[in-house]
Nucleic acid binder design. Structure first.
Lengths: 104, 104
DNA sequence: TCTTGACGCCTCGGAACGCTAGGTATAGGG
DNA sequence: CCCTATACCTAGCGTTCCGAGGCGTCAAGA
């Protein structure tokens, strides 16, 4: 699978993961791997910048926590983030259906 | 819909269109629009470089034709192109299923 | 004790690719 | 005569994903 396949869909998936419950970066990576059946095993260099981007866009909000001596930045959806998640899900369905139509 | 959504999937769709019968660039644009139900209305600056890329990769082969005083570069799938199309279709199904799993 | 691996965060720079904007040219209709 | 549709092309921009590297904690095992 081409590396660029993700482009434009990663944000939606991150929003979906965080929307299912607050999570820190490392956990987001694990959730993406789990929920995709192992298909998406994404490097940190992909996820962390994406989280920062989403926070800068006001779709996520973060706060530091400490657990077992390790510090974590925990993200949750903002109100705008939740509404964006709805839009992105719709976009994905439209997109996937269109691609299916072309590849059929 | 985000502009980058296409990334990595356009090649598969172009291969599918040309695989359904030889076509020139302008016709590829029309077919993509038609088969996607109007979702993909792609600019020439997207399609032509993609066609050149696919030909450079040996997946398409082109030849010039003239119809009604207009010259066209008509593309067809090479043998490698047809096999690549099969792979890309499989990649897409895997990818789409994985995204569905995450967004569910 | 020292090393390895999992956990957990970060950033810089390269590479790929879609698109905007601009260019050329022919045919046909108003 | 101009405008639209047809038909081709490319330079350069912006975005985004990823590889590589860096920092630090903790637990298990050699």
């Amino acid at each position: 699978m081409k590396a660029e396949a993700l482009k434009g869909h990663l944000d939606a998936m991150i929003l979906a993961v965080v929307g299912a419950g607050p999570a820190h970066g490392y956990a987001v990576i694990e959730q993406l791997r789990r929920r995709s059946g192992g298909v998406f095993d994404l490097p940190e260099g992909t996820i962390y910048p994406a989280l920062h981007r989403l926070e800068a866009d006001g779709l996520l909000a973060s706060s530091w926590q400490t657990a077992g001596g390790r510090r974590r930045r925990v993200y949750k959806l903002t109100r705008r983030g939740r509404s964006a998640l709805g839009e992105r899900r719709g976009d994905w369905r439209l997109f996937a259906q269109a691609v299916d139509g072309v590849l059929a």
